[in-house]
């Protein structure tokens, strides 16, 4: 980036009119940006759409710099691509994929309306731009005489100091708001360590293992997370495989290993040399796995109060 910020202003004409370099930059970046933006419309997966938007935003940063807005270009990279889009990606990961990613339209006529409105907007904006008169670009040579950030700072902390204060308040409020919105009330009394320990001991009768679960993958040939550990009796322990792998159906087949052990015990272990097959094929779509994951998370009891809204949602439909 630093090279860009030093190189690009050199491509600019002092009077604010575009140079050939800038034109090349524009004509390279503009199609990329449009394609990236269109990814927002046509990408089936939200992550792809987000990547497209990131491309657009980085390209925008280039354009800002090309237009003598050096400070904004940096801020664009830091704030948008560095913070906002990362936040988007975080939330995407948190929320996961669901049917709303599908491109099939469920509202009657919404697609037509959306296309008409979008195209109409484009046409109308084109009409406005075409009809406006701009005059010769003045350029920011004078305004940026003391470098761009200093010029901006003089305006922001001068003319717009009050607005800046307000925006600061807005940011604090937004942070607090996000906290409040995502906060969940504790519905049951908090249990201390002693109580949790007592509960685990008490659960022994139900077959819960008191000790930490055995680590997976203790076979010499298959030291991997998806391979179950062997118990003292030589049998594989399914519980040793991490839960997420089990839920996704990516664990190795415990029965296969059990059968192999039987063969070893029967004396035929040399005959077997091929790797154990996966327990199941990787799924074509993510939906069932996600659903299973969802079910698993709800079974952990974290969403006790959410059960009721779920039911009401079903009823509403």
């Amino acid at each position: 980036m630093t090279t860009l910020t030093t190189l690009l202003p050199a491509a600019l004409d002092a009077s604010g009119t575009t140079t050939t370099g800038e034109a090349i930059l524009f004509w390279v970046l503009a199609p990329i940006m449009v394609v990236g933006a269109l990814g927002l419309l046509f990408a089936r997966k939200a992550v792809h759409a987000a990547l497209g938007v990131i491309v657009v935003m980085i390209s925008l940063a280039f354009m800002y710099v090309a237009q003598d807005a050096v400070f904004l270009g940096i801020v664009q990279v830091v704030v948008y691509t560095g913070a906002i889009m990362m936040l988007f990606l975080f939330v995407l990961m948190l929320v996961g994929v669901d049917s709303s990613d599908s491109l099939t339209e469920t509202l009657a006529g919404q697609r037509v309306v959306g296309i008409v409105a979008g195209l109409g907007l484009a046409v109308v904006l084109a009409g406005v731009i075409g009809r406006a008169t701009y005059g010769a670009p003045v350029g920011l040579q004078d305004a940026n005489a003391e470098t761009n950030p200093v010029g901006l700072a003089k305006i922001v902390f001068g003319q717009h100091a009050f607005a800046l204060e307000i925006v600061g308040a807005l940011l604090v409020t937004a942070a607090l708001g996000a906290l409040v919105l995502t906060h969940r009330e504790r519905l049951t009394p908090k249990r201390d360590q002693r109580q949790r320990a007592d509960a685990r001991v008490a659960a022994l009768a139900d077959g819960v293992v008191l000790t930490p679960l055995p680590a997976p993958g203790v076979y010499a040939r298959h030291n991997a997370m998806d391979v179950p550990a062997l118990g003292p009796d030589g049998r594989p322990l399914e519980a040793s495989v991490p839960r997420v792998i089990r839920v996704r159906g990516q664990e190795a087949d415990a029965r296969e290993y059990a059968a192999r052990i039987d063969r070893v015990l029967a004396g035929g272990w040399a005959a077997d040399s091929e790797p154990p097959p996966q327990a199941s094929e990787p799924l074509s779509g993510d939906e069932p796995a996600t659903a299973a994951l969802d079910a698993a998370t709800s079974q952990t009891g974290q969403n006790g109060p959410a059960a009721a809204p779920d039911q009401s949602t079903e009823a509403d439909r």
Binding site: Q110, V113, G114, V116, A117, G118, G120, L121, V124
Partner: peptide, 8 residues
């Protein structure tokens, strides 16, 4: 959609 159409 309504808002956007209105704007247009």
């Amino acid at each position: 959609s309504t808002m956007l159409l209105g704007l247009v």
